[in-house]
């Protein structure tokens, strides 16, 4: 390997680290902003999921691995900063299921960004519900399934619409 090649590689790595940092910081701030929102819904686990905007954009612009990293690190950081172990567990279960579904949907090319995000939103709610039902050891929670399905669809769809516009506009500035 020549010296310039090594240099380039180092530059590339540094660029990547910086990009990861910015994305995680952005997702982190979105989580914080969402926690500041004055309204909350009557159903446990129901929220807008602003941070998912970053994850969806990263999934399309930078690939599965980067998006996964952003998603998991964001959840861990937010959990340690604002939450506790149990809120982190809920976020993680929702986040991981949502990510798996989004990555699968994107690979199969069944959907546009909006559809992928919708599927992710629904999966997120279902994942949280499953863990919540396990925590309170009660099947009574499944009473919320219809509400959570519809809310996941709507919030996921909205995030997907915004992410679609975002991806279209920032694509040219993002290094592959």
């Amino acid at each position: 390997m020549t010296k310039t090649a090594v240099n380039n590689q180092e530059k590339h790595a540094a660029k990547k680290v910086a990009l990861y940092g910015v994305l995680i910081a952005l997702a982190f701030v979105f989580s914080y902003v969402e926690a500041l929102l004055p309204f909350s819904f009557a159903v446990p686990g129901m929220k807008v999921g602003l941070a998912n905007l970053v994850v969806v954009a990263a999934l399309y612009l930078l690939g599965v691995r980067t998006a996964f990293g952003v998603s998991v690190i964001r959840i861990l950081l937010v959990g340690f900063t604002f939450g506790n172990l149990s809120t982190m567990m809920f976020s993680l279960s929702g986040g991981l299921l949502s990510f798996a579904v989004m990555a699968a949907c994107k690979n199969k090319a069944l959907f546009h960004v909006e559809g992928v995000s919708m599927a992710g939103g629904i999966a997120h709610n279902i994942g949280q519900l499953l863990v919540a039902a396990a925590v309170v050891e009660s099947a009574a929670l499944f009473y919320y399934v219809p509400v959570l399905l519809v809310s996941g669809l709507i919030t996921g769809g909205l995030i997907g619409l915004v992410a679609g516009q975002l991806i279209k506009r920032i694509r040219i500035y993002v290094p592959r």
Binding site: L110, F111, E114, G115, M118, P146, L153
Partner: peptide, 21 residues
């Protein structure tokens, strides 16, 4: 954009499931 719109199928399926539940 020209690919088939899976979104509509997904949305319809989810709404139907929620309604049934």
């Amino acid at each position: 954009r020209q690919k088939p719109c899976g979104e509509i199928v997904l949305a319809a399926a989810v709404l139907l499931t929620a309604l049934c539940c």
